[in-house]
Amino acid sequence: MEKRPTSHDVARAAGVSQSTVSFVFTGRAGISPATRQKVLTAAAELNYRPNLAARSMRTRRTGRLAVVVPIATLTPLTLLPGAIAAAQEEGYVVEVVSLPHQMTERDERLAELIGSGQYEGVLSFTPLPSAHAGSGPARELRADPRPEEGEPDQVVVLAVAEFDDDMHSAGALADALPIVTMMEHLAAGGQRRFLHLAGPRDFRSSLARREAYLATIERLGLESLGVIDGDWSGRSGEDAVNALPDGILPVAVIAANDLIATGALRAATRRGWRVPEDLTLTGWDDHPQSAFLAPSLTSVRQDRERLGAHSMHRLIAAVRGLPAPPAPTDLLRVVWRESTGPVPAA
């Protein structure tokens, strides 16, 4: 049987001491980024994994992190691959733990996790009870999470603000700036008449896009046919375009997601309206099928995997007593396609 690589093997390959390898995997401060990267590269090439049990006995660190998600929701799963990969690159084992939907039950389950002694840190993409902040074995993190001096053994709890209790986008993913970008581009191309097919009002992201739409209409002096409320379905978009009067072309339809936009496209086609000559159309979410519609749909891509990785790096930095990494600024990107006319140069 092939011998399992040791920290001595990693040290030899990286050209550093064995203690340096140990310091890297226990998160000790004072290791330069270049040295740390050499150790991690050598470890990856050798397929080295630290002995978590031995490390726990030596340092009282378990090498384990938890990501908690509400029961019966799929939304955080789009964030998990990035979060898990980021933790594994740093030598941690990650467990995904379900939390009850009820806040009181969630509080009890969270307290069990913190008191179990199994995890150095807990990451949540949804709000968590605030009762744990600064008390007991847990430390809740704020905007710039860093541990208190002399408290290396506390469990670090990081609740990022990307979703609310109902798993509606509430953080970086709710930023409506791409709506402004798309409308400015269409207006610069000569489009003056707009219509917004909005999502439900109980979504923060839907409200943000509505406000961005209305503000851009006013700022650029454009004509608005209004904001039509609906749900997130294709039927919502289809009904809205079917209800439009004749003689309003050309018009730009800003849909709150790709499903609404797909329904709008179907209705426009059945009415004999050409896209993008008579009706230009944008969506949001960049669903896989959107690139294969006829015409293909301009949409907004959300880099959820990268957001998950950044959130995990924040947690690990706090566990190790290091400064928080800078937040990514380009998680949302407009993907220009045929439904808005000629694709603009990058």
Rank of each mutant, 00 (worst) to 15 (best):
H313F: 09
Y48C: 08
A43C: 13
E89H: 07
A317K: 00
G136F: 03
V39R: 03
G82V: 04
R209Y: 05
T73D: 04
V94S: 09
T262D: 10
A34F: 10
V180C: 11
L110R: 03
T6P: 04
H313Y: 08
T59F: 13
R60H: 15
D165F: 09
P200G: 09
D153S: 12
S311T: 02
E95Y: 07
D144R: 09
G189R: 03
S32L: 13
V16M: 05
V122K: 01
L46P: 05
I179E: 00
L77V: 09
S124R: 00
H101E: 11
L297I: 12
R271I: 10
A86T: 00
R49N: 10
R139G: 02
G27M: 00
R55T: 05
I71C: 09
A309V: 05
F194I: 08
E151K: 13
T41V: 14
T41L: 10
R314L: 13
P245V: 10
W284S: 08
P328L: 06
T26E: 00
G272W: 02
A188M: 09
E140N: 09
H313N: 12
A174N: 02
A291R: 06
R49P: 06
G237S: 04
R204W: 12
V180W: 05
V319M: 05
L259F: 11
A133W: 08
S135V: 15
T181W: 02
R61Q: 06
D165K: 03
D286A: 13
A188C: 09
D164V: 07
A345N: 07
G247T: 04
G115R: 04
E2I: 15
T62N: 04
T26Q: 04
D107M: 11
Y92I: 06
G263A: 12
V227H: 02
A66T: 01
L315Q: 00
A267F: 05
S135M: 14
A174K: 02
G136L: 02
R146A: 15
Q18M: 11
P81F: 05
Q37A: 15
R146Q: 14
A34N: 10
I114E: 01
E89V: 11
A324G: 11
H101M: 13
V156C: 04
A188N: 11
F25W: 03
L293F: 08
M57Q: 10
A294G: 12
M57W: 06
A13W: 05
M103C: 10
R333F: 06
I248V: 15
M1H: 12
S236R: 00
I31H: 03
V180R: 01
A256I: 06
R61S: 07
V16C: 09
P76V: 02
R320E: 10
E148P: 12
L186N: 04
S22I: 07
E45N: 14
L128C: 06
F163D: 01
A43L: 08
V335A: 08
H101P: 08
P129H: 05
T104C: 09
P127D: 03
D165I: 15
A174I: 02
N51Y: 04
P326E: 11
I179K: 00
L225H: 06
G30E: 03
P127K: 00
T104S: 15
F25M: 01
N242E: 14
T6F: 04
V93I: 14
E140M: 15
A87H: 01
A268D: 06
G30M: 06
R28Q: 13
R210C: 15
E238G: 09
A309T: 02
L195R: 01
L279V: 15
A133L: 14
Q289C: 14
K3Q: 15
L249F: 08
